[in-house]
Amino acid sequence: MNLFDRADFDAFVTGLAGVTLVDQWESHVAKVGDKVFTLLHRGDEGANICIKVTEESFEILTSLEGIGQAPYFAKRKWVSITDKASLPAEELVHYVKRSYDLVAEGLTRKLKNELGIVPLA
Rank of each mutant, 00 (worst) to 15 (best):
E26C: 02
Q69M: 11
M1E: 08
Q69C: 04
Y95I: 10
R42S: 12
I67N: 05
E105V: 09
V13R: 06
P88N: 11
G18A: 10
E114Y: 07
V29K: 01
R42I: 09
P71D: 09
S57M: 12
E56R: 14
K84S: 10
A74L: 13
F37L: 11
V79T: 08
G66L: 10
E114D: 13
N113T: 12
A11S: 14
K110S: 13
E105Q: 14
L111P: 01
E105K: 15
V93H: 03
E45W: 00
P119V: 07
C50P: 00
K52W: 10
A89N: 02
D5T: 08
K77F: 07
F4S: 01
E90T: 12
K77V: 07
K84F: 05
D44K: 14
A85C: 09
E105W: 10
V96T: 09
L16W: 05
H94L: 12
V19K: 02
D23K: 15
T82A: 06
T82I: 06
T20R: 11
G43H: 11
D44T: 13
A89T: 05
M1Y: 02
L40P: 03
N48R: 13
A104T: 08
Q24G: 03
E91V: 06
H94D: 10
E45M: 04
E114P: 00
P71T: 13
V19L: 03
L115Q: 08
E91D: 14
L40Y: 03
L64W: 07
K112H: 08
I60E: 14
I67P: 03
K84G: 02
T62V: 14
P119S: 09
A11Q: 14
F73C: 02
T38P: 03
V118F: 02
A85D: 00
L21E: 02
V29P: 00
Q69G: 11
T82M: 01
G43C: 05
P88M: 06
E114W: 01
Y72P: 03
L64R: 15
T108M: 07
A70T: 09
L21H: 04
I67V: 15
L102I: 15
E56L: 12
I49H: 08
P119R: 15
K84Q: 12
L107I: 12
T20F: 02
